[in-house]
Every structure is written in structure tokens, then in C-alpha cells.
């Protein structure tokens, strides 16, 4: 078997461990402390933010415009409408500012 194959297998095992690991560890506790619960509630926003924030360092006017429009539309619309609005602004803006 090729090295690539083993990288994919090992990567898949590592990924599954992350997906089941939190449950296997946390479920050993009977009661969840309020602070732990507060931490868990903060998880999605905390993680997803880290996938966006560093992009701001490399973002130009087109990217900024797309993110601002995305944020504004998300106050009213659903996920799909805000995604399409942001993508549309990005594509149009890049025709002008590259």
C-alpha cells in the first residue's frame, strides 16, 4: 500500500477519535458543572471564529465587503441567503479590485 493510502487511513482514524473523544471523556462525569456547561455552550462560536479571524489579515477590499454584507444579511436572513449574498458581493467586487 502507498504512503498516501496510509496517510488517509491514519488521518481518518485521528479524525474519528476527535469526533468520539469528547463524548467518551465527558460522559464519565455524572454531573456537569455550570462552568463546564458554560464552556460547552461557548464552543461553536469560539471554534468557528478561529476559522474566520485569521483570514482578515490577508483580506482585501473585496473580501471585507463580502464579510460585511454577510454579517448584515445574517441579522435578517437564513444561512443560505447570507452565504449567497456574501459570495455574490465577493465575485462582483473581485472583477473590479482583483
Amino acid at each position: 500500500m502507498s504512503t498516501t493510502f496510509w496517510i488517509i487511513i491514519a488521518g481518518a482514524v485521528a479524525t474519528y477519535l476527535t469526533r468520539i473523544g469528547g463524548h467518551l471523556v465527558i460522559s464519565r462525569f455524572d454531573n456537569i458543572h455550570p462552568r463546564v456547561e458554560a464552556g460547552l455552550n461557548a464552543v461553536p462560536a469560539a471554534v468557528l471564529t478561529t476559522l474566520v479571524a485569521p483570514e482578515l489579515l490577508n483580506a482585501g477590499p473585496a473580501e471585507w465587503a463580502a464579510l460585511v454584507v454577510t454579517a448584515v444579511v445574517s441579522l435578517r436572513g437564513g444561512l443560505m441567503s447570507m452565504f449567497l449574498a456574501g459570495a455574490a458581493v465577493l465575485i462582483v467586487a473581485r472583477q473590479f479590485v482583483g
Binding site: 476559522l51 483570514e55 483580506a59
Partner: peptide
């Protein structure tokens, strides 16, 4: 840049 846009929507 579609990925950051999508993730921003999830954060919001």
C-alpha cells in the same frame, strides 16, 4: 474565500 464567508454565517 467562500469558506470564511460560510463560517462567518455560522458564527452569526
Amino acid at each position: 474565500f467562500l469558506l470564511p464567508i460560510y463560517f462567518l454565517g455560522l458564527v452569526m
